[in-house]
């Protein structure tokens, strides 16, 4: 295991609103890590900083030793919170797009997963249900042989069966030497697949522990601990 992600003193403000405040942490390869926090705590900001979509005002971010830039972005496969494919495109066109755009994209893997789902690649994005749209997007993101997967709310607004599919897709497809970061507030759904959890509270790191440690030391699930730490 080697260090894949390193943040030192990262801060990001939106005007006077705080996004992230002096965030320092390190994530090793081969880990599935949950980025957990209530709405507005800074989860998405953190993911966007790692993906290179947002520039922090202060601090340093390294992905596999490289500062955020073209090189780091090539290592990162990012699933945004909201689908961004054009409604007018067909699934096959989105696949073409990914193939052209990302050198590490594995077309066969994507096509195999679509087949499992029984989705015809000639269908238009606009004809897909919300759940299928999210699944298609995840399939594309997980079909890259990336070093870091950043998944922002991969299960937002889909039914429990779709959640199972999404978790299985993640578990089956990530590289063993990659890291997967999953931001979510649906903790009970993901906690069994996580190695470690990071709690973000008002832009600050509130807790960074392994799921086993939490269960052993606190005798409770991550979900239960979350409800305590973030009780209103």
């Amino acid at each position: 295991m080697e260090e894949l992600i390193r943040c030192k003193g990262v801060s990001k403000k939106y005007g006077r609103t705080l996004g992230l405040e002096d965030l320092s942490l390190s994530i090793a390869s081969g880990k599935i890590v949950g980025i957990l926090g209530p709405n507005g705590s800074g989860k998405t900001t953190f993911i966007k900083v790692l993906s290179g979509l947002l520039m922090p005002e202060a601090g340093e971010v390294l992905i596999d030793g490289k500062p955020i830039g073209t090189e780091s972005k090539a290592l990162v496969s990012y699933l945004p919170e909201r689908p961004y494919f054009s409604d007018a495109m067909r699934i096959s066109e989105v696949i073409d797009f990914f193939e052209e755009f990302y050198r590490d994209f594995q077309r066969e893997a994507a096509e195999r997963m679509l087949q499992t789902l029984g989705l015809d690649p000639e269908r238009k994005i606009s004809a897909l249900s919300k759940g299928n749209r999210e699944k298609v997007q995840l399939i594309l993101v997980m079909s890259r042989k990336a070093k870091v997967y950043l998944l922002d709310e991969p299960m937002g607004g889909v039914d429990p069966a779709a959640r199972d599919f999404i978790l299985k897709t993640i578990l089956t497809n990530y590289n063993e030497d990659a890291s997967v970061l999953i931001s979510t507030h649906l903790i009970s759904d993901v906690e069994n697949v996580l190695d470690d959890v990071i709690f973000i509270k008002q832009g600050r790191l509130a807790l960074y522990k392994s799921v086993d440690e939490i269960r052993m030391e606190e005798n409770k699930s991550v979900d239960a601990l979350f409800r305590e730490v973030f009780a209103c």
Partner: peptide
Amino acid sequence: VRELAVDAGVNPNT
């Protein structure tokens, strides 16, 4: 390990 992990719905490291 991976197959067992997916079947159980847990992390392969676990």
